[in-house]
Amino acid sequence: MIQLTINGLSTSVEEGSTILEAARFLGFPIPTLCHLDGLTPSGNCRLCVVEIGEGERARLVSSCTYRAEPGLKVRTSSERVVKARRMIIELLLASCPQSKVIQDLASAHGVRRQRFRQEYEDCILCGRCVRMCEEQMMAKAIGFRGRGERRSIGTPFDVQSDVCRLCGGCLYVCPACQLRCTYTEPEKAVCGGCANIAPPCIEKEQFSDLMCYMDPCVACEIQKDQ
């Protein structure tokens, strides 16, 4: 067992547990985005920042990947943490404002504006879908591609993968993805989640909005706007 202090409360957790797990055990909320129980933590989104250490040596780390250490002093909502967290949310808003998950985060943390160049990305590269596909569905049909600015997630060569079983797991765990739905190009479909259940989008003419299980479906809303 490892002894550590979180927000002044001392607790002990099993060896190998992360700060996030320890904090959740004590009931301290830490917002997360790329973290999902059952998937290996990857530390992609940085939303789960906490401050560790004291004085000069205090620093921010991502709690979902940082393992608890004996004697560690953790603060989950110090001023610095809150500031960093809001900045991260602001940046997420700048890249993917249409995501319900991100909007909810913004409102929960009182982020009311976004000062950066507005983009409308359909992916925040959190990698949940990649890990879902590999670790839970044992398929690894999608992965990260490219690097830097050109980093993206998708199937190799952008064609439907041989190993994809159209389970829709990637869509299910995606915090941003309503727009990644490839209903317009079914042969390139990454997930096919909607085609599996009821294809509201693909044969749109025959279905009313009400039959869409994605409520509201952002893809439809955007089409309506145009």
Partner: peptide, 14 residues
Amino acid sequence: RPLADVYGVATFYR
């Protein structure tokens, strides 16, 4: 190796 891995590495490096 999964194709996604091979493709990922091949596209990662310039």
